[in-house]
Design a protein around this nucleic acid. Structure first.
Lengths: 215, 215
DNA sequence: ACGAGCGGTTACCCGCCGGTAGGCTCGTGT
DNA sequence: ACACGAGCCTACCGGCGGGTAACCGCTCGT
């Protein structure tokens, strides 16, 4: 495990001296791996350093604190997700396909190498305001994008459109996470098509009917 | 606050000696409050004890460790949720209303006093296997119940029905959490009706159509 | 060659907090 | 009245892990 350095990602050639930028990137890689595997609290700075084939002070020459290091990673990956969803929504004007593309974005995110999604979706630093803010902003952004489309298409009041956006985003999020953790028993295509159908059927009915007070 | 012993919830009458059972309950109350407010890691045993108007060793006479204390709470509240959803699904045989009742169960759970749902839905002890297991089992159970109904009604393969169950549960989960955190800007009725509609429209279309490989 | 400085290391500090040892004080049965 | 035990307290320990002080040596420009 520890002896064989995972090829492709980090290359902890123990003796090597690296220029600042390269080292920083490599440290981020090591940190990501450890945080993903252990969670924030269980992860030790020593371990991250060790994984990078380097000693602790080096880590602190690049990042002022453990928290800051973590924040850097979370920032990066939340940004990836939001960008990816934004692209998905912009990729077409056909709403049905927008839905499908968005779902796919979530599945792709969760399926990405290194399991980085855990830092966003399964962080154990939920008590930190800044981390929460980052994650919340990200989901808000995603939900907002979806809500925009919904609103434009159904005339629902802002509040309600956002709620639906959040709900759909949450569904995608949860489904994608479940799919990954279940060792991909279902092929990814099938899974995201299924969820896309569920979502699309859910939203497309909305313009016509409004809410009756108690059925 | 501390002087007036809130009747009903905790009664931190600082001087009092309590019989074991009563004390245990009170300690659980204090622990819940602190864990909810601070999260597992930020919470200190001293603080829980203090909040209960008691010293730390007393806490350890009732619970062998911090982790165990936390587990007791998580166990309790996950059980509440699963029971509540099970009831919701059994409350009627009309599927549309089953969906509505389930959504309502989630909203009620999240809206319950003390914000105990945070221990289940926003725990920062995600790295602990046993905690994860409890939460996962709970969601599995919920998803399974939903999947059962879906399957019976659509003839979808088990795997896919479960995926849909998970997705719907996740949606309810996320929507309810969002609703609570947004200070209930939307009235709860409206919110859960909206989500119920979204869900119902999503699932009810399923028997007829099957999945086309790529649109 | 030689010194400047960058990239790195070893070895340490110390605060926080989970957990514990041992003693005190009431209420109660005899 | 006395002892016994249940219930609680004060005071402490110890280690884990984030963060740092101080020193080394390779490389490269001159």
């Amino acid at each position: 495990m520890t002896t064989t350095p995972t090829p492709g990602a980090d290359a902890p050639v123990k003796g090597a001296r690296l220029p600042r930028t390269a080292r920083r990137l490599q440290l981020l890689g090591a940190a990501r791996a450890v945080f993903v595997a252990q969670g924030y609290h269980a992860a030790a700075m020593d371990e991250i350093a060790e994984r990078a084939g380097v000693s602790k002070p080096v880590l602190y020459q690049h990042f002022p604190s453990k928290r800051e290091l973590y924040l850097a990673l979370v920032t990066q990956h939340t940004a990836e997700l939001t960008a990816s969803v934004r692209e998905a929504l912009a990729s077409t004007t056909v709403n049905k396909q927008r839905v499908a593309a968005t779902i796919q974005a979530f599945f792709a995110f969760v399926d990405a190498d290194g399991g980085a999604f855990r830092l966003v979706f399964e962080s154990d630093l939920t008590s930190d305001d800044e981390v929460r803010a980052l994650v919340d902003e990200s989901m808000q952004s995603v939900a907002g994008s979806i809500a925009g489309v919904i609103r434009e298409d159904t005339g629902l009041p802002e509040d309600q459109a956002v709620l639906l956006g959040v709900a759909l985003a949450g569904m995608a999020h949860t489904a994608a996470r479940y799919w990954v953790h279940s060792d991909q028993r279902i092929p990814r295509e099938t899974a995201d098509q299924l969820i896309a159908q569920l979502s699309w059927r859910g939203v497309r009915g909305f313009p016509r009917t409004d809410i009756h007070p108690v059925g």
